[in-house]
Design a protein around this nucleic acid. Structure first.
Lengths: 339, 339
DNA sequence: CTGAAAGCGCTTACAG
DNA sequence: CTGAAAGCGCTTACAG
């Protein structure tokens, strides 16, 4: 099937390409009757504008890029969902790339998106990204950028985040309020800001409530996953620390711990209370169901695109745009892994 | 920052645009020294070809579309992962769209991808899609199509599937082999082929092993999710059917059932064995861990792109391409929810 | 080995 | 109200 062009419509109707183009775009300087004839013919031929040509002329692709550390991940897939739903409403398509938490790959993906001339980029930083040269490069091409969840304070762009420290504080406080006296923390890698912030929130909550902070109760979960949670829980048992509560950095790590306790016949929450973080689907499906902190992924995705859209629109109009930082609310969800 | 063009390089070097273009693409009819000069200057200026112009000339976008029912879904996100990893290797970008299991939306997404002139499309059919006019439309534009998991037999295109009937047969057989005598089935909606096939596999396994098929032991889980599994399990208990095994259409439904039994003090697998389907991450994290059938999402994504790539290449060369159907292996994974 | 020229299919400033 | 023309930035068949 030969693709239909403006030229073909023009020839069929015996008018110029210019007029056809303007008629289809409802320019005011085209007569009503001509518009009707053109639109009818376009419909009849099932005309679809050649986006390649439109892109070249308008210097816009109506496409945005999204870089996330991992696709197979409840939180990020929720973000993706929020983004593509919102983008669709505004007629934008979304190209998704993965960084696999690698700095090198993230750099490569940014470069791909620059080459592709996307109209904007949304991203959550890879754990191993320290340098931000690639983001500066992106911005030097005048491509609007929005960061979410894992951000860099060094980059001047819009950001959508939660208050990790506060959220972790409240999670820990929930354990304290329910009677825990000796609370361990399964923390994430040393690098990422949100791992640091959650740790600090935990520490602060202890201090504010008269519980001594003990660094030997902090276990490292490098990958914040199920296996890490299992390992940390087994180590905790070996250490015989007599802990009565755990605040885990993610639901996955918390789930690993619960699995270990279930196997060993240790009762959750009677013997030990467990608090997760994120409110992944998982947390309501395990036994006992997991108390956690809700992290609004879908909302974060939606807001990310909305902000990006605003910036793209401002850029198009040549209006200056002031980057914004939006902090989304989180809240503790009590289930059966805490008293 | 003004974008660098071939013209600029040509002017800087005092040669023609043609030669610059050819030098950068390593045409054999350009002198070595010119190539070197051009490449050096391109690098110095950080030249990036304008893809919009390249697309227009080559009529290729190096972009493919992907339509899935839901992004937030372990299986589909695994497929997405396989696809974008493979696409990246070949220099393709992936646009992801969601159908939300709706026929109308699926149609719209197909239309978007046609307009966008993607080089190819991969998709898993929405549950509510019966009509295939939109897929015919896609093919009439000569855009290669690969379907995976949920396919339509009416469309002549490459397909990547599993043998649902066989997989369900083996899952049921596993229950029988472990001693179950009265096995219920939590089935999916009546429409989708894979829901039908899994039901048929269940039925066939009973018949082949001398167990009577009893339609009152088949419970409908319209959305094949956690809530459906809970509902079905509660109904099953109410019905007092004295069942000693359940084959659930998905891990989610199985997980809902396990949660109900855990709450009611019914021992899994001692009182009742449960078999899931898909091997989502979830299934190893719950207590007891869930026996299931592994459904290779990542592999399916990889293969989907590979086949699509072959077809796109054939099309470009003008070589005829014969659609293939690939059936991926599945296997039973025994965990603690069965004896 | 180099380059002038046509053309991909649009959009839009401008002339009439 | 209509249309000729320029131009977006490439690629490539062709001439020299």
């Amino acid at each position: 099937m030969r693709e239909v062009t403006l030229k073909q419509i023009a020839e069929n109707l015996g008018i110029s390409i210019t007029t056809v183009s303007k008629a289809l775009k409802n320019y005011s300087d085209v007569s009503k009757s001509t518009k009707e004839r053109v639109k009818e013919e376009a419909k009849r031929l099932n005309y679809k504008p050649n986006v390649f040509a439109v892109n070249l002329r308008t210097k816009e692709s109506k496409t945005v890029g999204l870089i996330i550390p991992e696709v197979v991940h409840h939180f990020f897939s929720s973000v993706v969902n929020g983004i593509i739903e919102q983008a669709e409403k505004k007629g934008y398509l979304v190209i998704i790339l993965q960084s696999n938490e690698s700095y090198k790959l993230e750099k490569k993906q940014i470069d791909l998106l620059i080459r592709k001339r996307v109209d904007g980029v949304m991203m959550s930083l890879a754990n191993k990204s320290i340098d931000i040269a690639h983001l500066k490069e992106l911005q030097s091409h005048d491509i609007p950028l929005v960061m979410f969840d894992k951000i860099s304070k060094m980059v001047n762009c819009s950001k959508i985040i939660i208050n990790d420290r506060k959220a972790a504080y409240e999670a820990t406080k929930h354990l304290i309020d329910s009677g825990c006296k000796k609370i361990a923390h399964f923390r994430g890698a040393l690098q990422p800001q949100n791992s640091i912030d959650r740790f600090l929130g935990y520490k602060k909550a202890l201090e504010d409530h008269g519980l001594p902070y003990d660094s030997s109760l902090v276990y490292l979960c490098e990958n914040v996953d199920y296996e890490d949670g299992r390992r940390a829980a087994l180590q905790l048992l070996k250490d015989k620390k007599d802990v009565d509560g755990i605040f885990a950095i993610t639901d996955m790590a918390a789930t690993g711990a619960i699995a270990v306790f279930n196997e060993k016949g240790i009762k959750v929450p009677d013997d030990i209370s467990i608090m997760g973080f994120s409110n992944w689907f998982l947390s309501q499906a395990i036994t006992p169901s997991l108390s956690t902190v809700d992290q609004p992924g879908f909302e974060m995705g939606k807001k990310s695109f909305k902000l990006l859209y605003k910036e793209m629109k401002a850029k198009k109009k040549g209006v200056p745009f002031e980057p914004k930082t939006v902090v989304l609310d989180t809240y503790v969800i009590k289930r059966n892994s805490t008293k």
